[in-house]
Design a protein around this nucleic acid. Structure first.
Lengths: 153, 153
DNA sequence: ATATTATGGACTTTATGCATCTATGATGTA
DNA sequence: TACATCATAGATGCATAAAGTCCATAATAT
């Protein structure tokens, strides 16, 4: 019940892109800036392309660009692009029917949890995340350039 | 972000025991009744013992018994007995500080999600689950007992 | 023509969830 | 006392998935 590294990478990449929503980004740039293995990131980006979250352009001056403004990209979309449909428990998928079928005490609660989580994922956007970070908020207050990315080591 | 088989086993065992809260149950009985590998269940039970959810007795006529009435056993307790503390993402645990430290756009949201989930886990008890199943509800309808939760499937 | 970039798939590595086995220790009963 | 029953503890094996690498190909700006 944990966020996979892969999902983390995806979110990191998208928040990075979201800071300059009109720019194009190469895998190389994102990879270096966000400390993500280049070849692995390539695989991740394909899923985001497939889901229609980013658009890709091949060749020199190619790269990736957000298809929609950050405000319209939900965490749920991102999650599903990476992990597929959100499920909490998979019982009867091994072509055998669980002996608790139709009488499982816990199923309704995992489902309740699932719906609750989906709701939060659904209503959280990339923009929310961009406004959320501490320095992000500081920058807003200072009227400083939104592009700036402070990294504390 | 999924329920592990191990957690499922634990919940299954406890709901099984919860149906006769005063009885003693051997691993063998639970194992056979709930279709859980015996030796593996043994390991699971130890965690439940350690967390104080069940009490164990060695020797003939030994076995396990619930330490508290089902009403007082929360899903959160069970979860934590099996999986440890509930966390959504573990960033800075590899004795290296993440370069996004103090400025991570996504962290607040995983935390929000975490709290929301914990709340549901916390407020759900073994008893809730016992009353939840379809057949459970059918029985309740027939006996017209109060305290029921309608489940839409 | 060439350098740059993404695409797609095969492949390797690493981690871990799940499960088994065996030896040990406690305890009720005959 | 002896025995059968049951939990405890740790070592080990295995299968699957997550994470990461590599390479050959295709598109396209300059």
């Amino acid at each position: 019940m944990q966020v996979s590294k892969t999902l983390d990478y995806a979110v990191r990449s998208l928040t990075y892109m979201g800071r300059h929503p009109v720019n194009r980004f190469s895998i190389k740039e994102i990879s270096e800036n966000q400390h993500i293995p280049l070849n692995y990131l390539a695989k991740i980006m394909r899923r985001l392309v497939k889901k229609g979250i980013v658009k890709s352009m091949v060749g020199p001056e190619g790269g990736y660009i957000l298809r929609k403004p950050p405000k319209e990209i939900s965490l749920r979309e991102i999650y599903e692009a990476i992990e597929g449909e959100f499920v909490m428990i998979d019982c009867m998928d091994k072509n055998t029917i669980c002996f608790l079928y139709e009488n499982c005490p816990q199923l309704p609660f995992w489902d309740k949890l699932r719906l609750s989580m989906i709701k939060i994922l659904e209503t959280t956007t990339l923009e929310d995340m961009l406004n959320q970070s501490r320095i992000g908020n500081l920058n807003k207050h200072n009227n400083s350039v939104a592009n700036e990315k402070e990294v504390k080591l």
